[in-house]
């Protein structure tokens, strides 16, 4: 194993300098944008839950499934038309944290790798960003499920 060289005094001083000079993110503006856009996305989601509960005669818990699919479709359409990335410059986490962000990560990857063909492009690259969410979600759920199954005995 290569040893990690200690930073020289010059390097340490430089790191300190760039930390001092780093322009701050627009914390307040970003936070407000994320809160209001995220809230709005969830309100739209709630509207679809109510809509599907009414027209499909479903209990609200089950109506959230088609509502999620609808929100994913909206995220996909916005991405396909090149609008999502522009909105997300402002909305930030407000669009990324709801399922719209999940849709965006998959649709943007599929679009981007279209040129590499159906198999090595779209097919294998579609999960390039969302893969880690699915992987760690499944790993967590597996152990949670295992613990539950063991405790039940």
């Amino acid at each position: 194993m290569s040893q990690k060289p200690l930073p020289t005094p010059e390097q340490a001083r430089y790191q300190q300098l760039i930390k001092e000079m780093e322009p701050p993110a627009r914390y307040t503006a970003n936070a407000l944008w994320a809160f209001f856009s995220g809230g709005l996305v969830c309100v739209i989601g709630q509207f679809f839950i109510d809509l599907y509960a009414a027209i499909l005669h479903l209990p609200p818990v089950e109506a959230s499934n088609p509502a999620v699919a609808t929100m994913i479709m909206l995220g996909a359409i916005l991405t396909a038309f090149g609008v999502f990335d522009r909105l997300a410059r402002y909305a930030g986490a407000g669009l990324a944290v709801p399922v719209t962000g999940f849709a965006n990560s998959m649709v943007s990857a599929a679009l981007e790798y279209k040129q590499e063909g159906f198999i090595q492009g779209i097919g294998s690259k579609i999960f390039i960003l969302s893969g880690s969410v699915i992987t760690y979600g499944v790993v967590t759920a597996f152990f949670v499920g295992l613990i539950h199954a063991l405790l039940k005995r």
Binding site: V41, I49, S64, A67, V68, V99, A141, L146
Partner: peptide, 26 residues
């Protein structure tokens, strides 16, 4: 309590995965 406010964010994805695994394991 919050309907879409809790089921739209990606946290709900983890929750649903775990619930699916638990209920079927049951």
């Amino acid at each position: 309590f919050a309907g879409g406010g809790a089921s739209m964010p990606i946290i709900s994805f983890g929750n649903s995965l775990a619930k699916g695994a638990i209920s079927e394991a049951g």
